[in-house]
Structures are given as C-alpha cells and as structure tokens.
C-alpha cells in the first residue's frame, strides 16, 4: 500500500503516514485553504467593526479618510499587486523546475514586499506627526464629528497593522524559502512550500485590495485626487 518515493536527490519528500505524493499534496492544499478561511474570518471581525461604525458615523469616517494619502495608497496597492505577480511567476518557475528563475522571482517578491512595508511605515510616521493616532495626543485638524473620528483611525491602525503583521510573517517565511530554493530543495516534482506560501501571499494581497478602497477612498469627491 504505502509506496516510498525517493526523488533523484536523496531527500525523501513523502511522509510516512501518507500513501502517495498525490494524497500528501492534496492534504497540504486543503489544509492551506482551510487556514486561509480562518484568516478570512479573522479579518472579518475587523471588517464588521468597520462597516458598523462607518454606517453609524459617516461624516467622521469621510473626513478622517480624507486625511490618508490617496497617492501613496494607490501606489502601494500597485506595489503589492506587482509582488503578487512575481509570486505567481515564482510558483510557475518552480513547477517547471527552473531554479534560478524561482530564486529570482522570490527575491523580487521579497523586495516588493519590503517597499510596501517601507511606504506603510512612512504613512504611520506621518499619522503620528499629525496627531492622528488614537489616544491622548489625538487631534484631528478639520475632522467632522471629532468625537467619532478616532474610531476611524483605530480601525485604520487595527486593520493595516494586522495586515502589516501578516506581511512581516510572510517576510520571514519567504526569506527561509529563498534560502531553501537557492540550495535546490525544490524540484518540479515537489515544491509544496513555495506553492503554499504563494497562496498565503496572494491572500494578504486580497486583504489589501479591500482595505485600500475602504480606508483611503471614502467620499473623495470634495477633495479630489490629492
């Protein structure tokens, strides 16, 4: 029943409790998707809080949202989508067994992720300087309904912070995978970690695809593209 597969390298990639490679890969894929479902629900709680307060305090949310930098937000979205493309290309290269391309695309993904986090850090700093961080020093100049404006920034920092935490975790895992890839751990036959990490990275991208319009793009018509 249990057949052991030994690839060309000496690495045995089939664990003892699986019957074959197909079962093992399927298990990883299902497991990863189930994990991503838990992530959807994890962010879901924050999205509920967002919708609840946005519908309760539209004026506060609109004016507070206008304090974000639309250009930086859109540019960062672009950066993240680029990193999703390079990640998809990395998985593609892995499936064809092209080691150099795989490493190259993974490094590109890492760099783009770094750029995103850098821009995010700049934006956080900007918020801090302008007293837009909820707490004792909060002072949102020109915010309507100033009593509820902090809620927007609570959610802004809660959501983007949780997103950035996911990016940071991804950063660490990606670095490990780059080292493994450059050492030739992955073959066209077995590159499950690259594939699973790809799913994670795209998921983080999707979260941002929703965060961008919800946090940066409320009621921009009065202020325009600035």
């Amino acid at each position: 029943m249990a057949s052991q597969v030994v690839p060309h390298e000496e690495v045995v990639t089939l664990k003892h409790h699986f019957a074959n490679d197909e079962q093992q890969l399927d298990a990883s894929t299902i497991g990863m998707w189930v994990f991503l479902v838990t992530e959807i629900m994890f962010f879901g709680g924050l999205f509920l809080a967002y919708f609840a307060y946005r519908q309760a305090y539209p004026a506060a949310f609109a004016s507070a949202s206008n304090k974000t930098n639309l250009w930086l937000g859109a540019a960062n979205t672009t950066v993240l989508i680029c990193s999703s493309l390079t990640m998809a290309m990395a998985v593609h290269s892995a499936s064809l067994g092209k080691r150099t391309l795989l490493v190259l695309f993974l490094i590109l993904t890492l760099i783009l992720g770094g750029v995103f986090l850098g821009v995010k850090a700049y934006e956080y700093h900007d918020k801090w300087v302008h007293h837009e961080v909820p707490g004792a020093h909060f002072d949102c100049e020109g915010c309507d309904d100033a009593g509820h404006a902090p809620l927007f920034f609570s959610l802004y920092f809660g959501m983007t912070g949780l997103h950035a935490t996911h990016m940071l975790v991804g950063f660490v895992i990606l670095s490990i995978i780059i080292v493994q890839a450059s050492r030739g751990k992955f073959t066209a036959k077995w590159y499950t970690p690259v594939e699973m990490f790809g799913l994670y990275w795209h998921f983080v991208d999707i979260v941002w695809i929703f965060l961008f319009p919800l946090l940066y793009l409320i009621d921009r018509s009065h202020t325009g593209l600035k």
């Binding site: 879901g44 809080a49 902090p150 609570s154 920092f157 809660g158 949780l162």
Partner: peptide, 24 residues
C-alpha cells in the same frame, strides 16, 4: 475553523482597547 478566528480578533481588539486605549 469558522468561529474561533472571530473571537480571537475580538479579544485582540479588547486587548488593544484596554492596553493602548485605542477605542473600539
């Protein structure tokens, strides 16, 4: 799978509100 993450994020917000006075 479907429920636990929601209470996790809720407690996370609770901890933020209590610890850092970030209102939720």
């Amino acid at each position: 799978i479907l429920g636990t993450p929601v209470v996790a994020v809720t407690l996370f917000l609770l901890v933020l509100e209590r610890g850092l006075h970030i209102g939720f």
